[in-house]
Each structure stands twice: as structure tokens, then as C-alpha cells.
Design a protein around this nucleic acid. Sequence first.
DNA 1: CGAAAGCCTTAACATTTGTTATCGTTTTGT
DNA 2: ACAAAACGATAACAAATGTTAAGGCTTTCG
Lengths: 188, 188
Amino acid sequence: MLQLKNVLKQMIHISEEELEAFAELCYQKVFNRKALLSQEAKFITEVYFIKKGIIRVKLDDLGGTEHTIHFAIENQFIADYRAFLTQQKSAYQLQALEDTDVIVMPKAAIEWGYANLEQGEKLGRLIAEYYFIYLDSRIQHLYTLNPKERYDLLNEIFPNIHNRVPQHMIASYLGITPVHLSRLKRQS
Amino acid sequence: MLQLKNVLKQMIHISEEELEAFAELCYQKVFNRKALLSQEAKFITEVYFIKKGIIRVKLDDLGGTEHTIHFAIENQFIADYRAFLTQQKSAYQLQALEDTDVIVMPKAAIEWGYANLEQGEKLGRLIAEYYFIYLDSRIQHLYTLNPKERYDLLNEIFPNIHNRVPQHMIASYLGITPVHLSRLKRQS
DNA sequence: CGAAAGCCTTAACATTTGTTATCGTTTTGT
DNA sequence: ACAAAACGATAACAAATGTTAAGGCTTTCG
């Protein structure tokens, strides 16, 4: 839990007692490679903090094609945060790409935090703002960068990704086919 | 100011006195068609509430191509919210597409709200969550819909758009060229 | 260990989307 | 009211990206 506590301490002012009470409401869990943390069409009641491993967020379109929307690694929070917030069924699936250790933060813990942590609402605001900023830059890049430029950027942001993620998932994340990514790599 | 007050009342529990004090810190402004509300490479210190009119958010890439990222209309908030939050220079420009009446909410007003409104932090959280949800669905659509499907969706969400926005801006928003949008319309 | 599955590359061909240029219409600003 | 600018449609051609199929390498798992 130390990892989670450290991340929380960086975000808001929070006492050891508050941290301890919050941690009491969370628990640890291990997912094997390829296991699903959460499934499509389910209501989402958990947010995950990744201690070790890597998670991808994926999405099937109506034609049955699978899209990889996001990767999350150590020390990051991950969830279908939209479904969590709106109480609608999830559009996404979360899948472990390695054996992955997470801390599960149930909805009850997070709501307890909003109500009882001195800066609970602020924590909620910071998390939403953080995700907003991330998505805003994603959209900006989708408009202004071509696939090759997005590939280069991804390698900057996530240097080791080719060692941890199959290339066809990277292609999907970039919005192109695996065959095309293979071509782009050859050209550079 | 009534329009703004009504929207705020729908979001949080807020007294008439609080509303009045907040409104005191805001002011109204009119922008002519084509005028810029905010400019690229400037620090952002204002959020706008649109009383009447329509605003687009645009972005120039390194090659000099202009991209239309977003449209905002009556009763919506608009700003380069990322630049506002992060205190970095804006990547975007906000431009009125009609003569547009806005209420300007200066940074000082918003920070006063966080500090002094009973549910100020909650308001900030809700706004960030609202934008997050919007961007999350934008990204989902960019992955799963082709240009024609995105065009049809846009017309559902914003029924009159062809009467208020030039078609080449719609094409840019969809991520395609005006020539291609013209072709897609013909095919359907 | 060995078979099966998963994965990456490459090639040939198909489809989608972009580019450039032209024309007629509408809108704008004076 | 008029000249200029902006706008949208269309055609011909070019470039980017997708599809299908084959081959070889690596990983997985019984």
C-alpha cells in the first residue's frame, strides 16, 4: 500500500490517519496475464492502482474489430472512469498484459474519501482534471500527427513499449493495421 | 446572468447570495463574427459561458494546417481548459463563428468559487468530469467510427450544424478534407 | 520435448482519402 | 449595388492505408 499512499500524498494534503483509514477500505489483488479486470456491459464499481504490471483498455466496435484505446503501467490509476462516474455500463474491457498486481479501490472507498477526507473533493477534481488533460492531448495528437509521428511519440512517452506489448496492439492504439505499422517501421 | 445562474443551480447546491457574489466577479462581453476570444501561445485566465452564438476551438499544426477541434453553443462553457488548469500557454484559438454574447468568468472568480462556495470544489470536479466524459466519448468515436459515421453522429448531436457552420470546418472537425466530405454526402 | 498458436514481415492488390484545379453560386464588405 | 472573397461541388490523378495470403520465427502449453 506504500506505493498508493505515496502517490496520494503527492496529490493532496492528507494525514497518516486519513491514509490509513482509506487504505483499510482497499485491498490487493493479482491478475494473471490475459485476465480481464473488468468487462464490457458491466457496471463499474472499482478503480485500480497498478503496483506492478501493465493493463490495456480495449473496445470492440460493432463490426467486431477490437481497438486498444489505452495502456496503463506501474503507479497509475486505471478504470473505465466514464462508466464509473456515470453509472452506465462499461464500453471497455480492462485486460492485464503481464501478471499484474493491483490495489482495488472500491466505489465505497472513493465515496468515503469524498465525504470524509479533508481534501476528498479536491482529490476527485484533480483525478478528473488529470484525465481530462491526458485526453485533451490525445485528441490534439490525433488531429495533428500522422501515424508515424504518433508512433514516434508513443516510443518517447513509453520507451520500452515494444518489449512489453505485442505490436498489433500498438498498431491498434495508433489507429492503423499491424501490416501498416510494419511498413512504417521499415521506412524509418 | 440568469442563464449562467440557472446552469450553476443545476450542477450544485448554491444559495442566491453565493450566486450573486459569484456573478459580481464576472462580466458580459460581445464578440463579433470571426473575432478571437483567446489566442494561441497566451496564458489563459478566462472561462467563457455562451449566452448566444457559437464558438469553435481551432488548432494549427506544424505544417500550418488548421484543425477545428470543437464547437460550443448556447448554455455551454468553453475555454482552453487544459491551458487554464496547467498554466501553460494555449495550444488553441477560440473563435466566434457568429456574433456571440458571452459571460466572462475570470480566473479570480473561479478561484474565489473554489475557496468560498460551499460546493466550490465539487463544482470544479463536476466540470472536469463533464469534460472528461465528453472527451472520452470523442476518443471512442474516433476509434470506432469512420468519417461518414462520425458525420451522421455529428448531425444527430448538433442538428442544425450545416446552417451555422461552414462545411470545411465540419470536415476539419471530422478529420477529413472538404472535398472528401462533399463526396461522402453525395454517396448517402 | 513437440505441436499448436501467436506473432511479425513482406508482397500484391484494393479501397479510402488527399491534392490540385476549375466552375458556378453565395456571401461579405464597402 | 458591386466587386471581391468565400464557399461548395466535381473531376482527374496521387498518396496513404487496408486486405488477403504466405512464410518463418518465437512463445506457450500439454
